[in-house]
Structure formats: structure tokens, C-alpha cells
Amino acid sequence: MEHVIEIKHLAKSFGTQKVLNDINFVVDKGEVVTIIGQSGSGKSTMLRCINLLEVPDAGEIYVNGKSIYEGNINKHRSEVGMVFQSFNLFDNKTVLENCVLGQVKVLKRNKHEAIEIAHKYLKKVGMDEFADKPSTQLSGGQKQRVAIARSLCMDCQVILFDEPTSALDPITVDEVLNVMKKLAEEGLTMVVVTHEMAFAKDVSDRVVFMENGVIVEEGRPEQLFVNPQTDSLRRFLGRYLNQQTA
């Protein structure tokens, strides 16, 4: 089985604060892995290390068997899609331009082909009718769907989602989650940091629980949610259920 992502002994500190400590973890082709854990446990930092938006202090990261330090960093980044909590669409571009820019500048596609591909993926996320709108004029859920399309346009091997629905109001959360579910069913490899436990339970193949910069527990969702092995996960899930019902 080919690992799309393989992380070995990843460590990262900010100043004196150890944020990631000996992280080991693999993602296989077609897998959907969700990462859960308290705020500040290092989930975002781990994702950002895979894309080299944060530079690891130690350890190795491989994407498709290739070390992220080898070869061209921009090419590497284009192969790993990233969807942010705050969308990060280009505010000076239209929806279509958001999806075309990287294809033309990074993948060196010709513009017509790039536009065709952009329309294809915008259709997939249900945003094609907004293609010519300035991206600043979209709602949060629409922005996030465009951000997903922007990643798909780069033909990335895997998309990393960092709390993609946390900035959305409850009603629009589903419009984004549904797109993500569809992509998961189509076999896209995905790593999703989320507080949406329903998504973690129903959609993911594997759940990873992080605490204080280490992976405490991981496994299939039914196993993890029904039968947590550690106290900290039990506490986390317990607190979570209280929040849900409160």
C-alpha cells in the first residue's frame, strides 16, 4: 500500500513551547483521516508542517514517498491542497480567477485548459454560477466551497482541511460538509481537522486524537468513539457531549 503521507518523529516548538512532540502517522491513498483534540493541542501546526507553511524542527515528512525537503518546494505545495478555516481566497480575484491562477502560474497550463478545469471543479462544488463574481462577495460557505475547488484544480494528491467549517454559521456548515462527503466517496485522500464529531464518525476511515502535541489514540471511528482507550480521550469526548447537549 502506498502512503500518500508519512510522518516520522515530527517535532516542532514555538520558542520554548513544545507544540509537536514525536508525531508518527501515515495516510494511505483514498483514506479520510480526521484529527480531533483540544484547542492548542497542535492540530493546525501538524497540518501546516505537511505543507511547509510551518517549518518542522525535526523529523521527516514524505508525500507520495518523496521527502518534502527534496525538490522544488512550490511544486510540493501544489501537490498538497490546503483548505483554511478563514478560507483565504484571493480577495482581488474573481471566483474563476482564484481557480485559474495556480494552474497557469504553477502548473503552467494554458489558460483555456485551466478555465475548463476550473469550471469543472466549480460545478462539482456547486459554485459554477458564481464564476465571475468577486470572491469577496460570497458567503462563508460559498467561499469555502470555492477554496476546495481551488485545491482540486491543482490536481493535488491530498487535501488538508484545517477546521473548514469553524468559521461558518450552523446553517451553512452542511453545504461544505456535503461537498467534503462527496469528495470522500469519490476516493479523494483527505486529512481533516474538525470539531464536527458527526463528520468524524460518519465519513472518516480513521480518527486521530491529539493532546499536548502528541497523538494519544488513533483508530477506526466506531472503535474510538464507542470504546476510547485512554482517560484523556474519554474526558475529551465527555466534555464534547456535554457541550453538544448544553
Binding site: K75, R77, S78, F84, N88, F90, N92, K93, V106, A147
Partner: peptide, 23 residues
Amino acid sequence: IDKGQSEGARSIGLSAWQTMRLI
């Protein structure tokens, strides 16, 4: 300009100068 703008650009593989110039 919000840091997210350049992070979004870098994450799809634009270079530092492309990010500066285009975004």
C-alpha cells in the same frame, strides 16, 4: 494585508515573488 492571503497563495505553490506581485 491579512496573512491568510499569502498563505493561500503559497499553499497552491505560488512563489514568494508571484504571491507578492499577483496577490
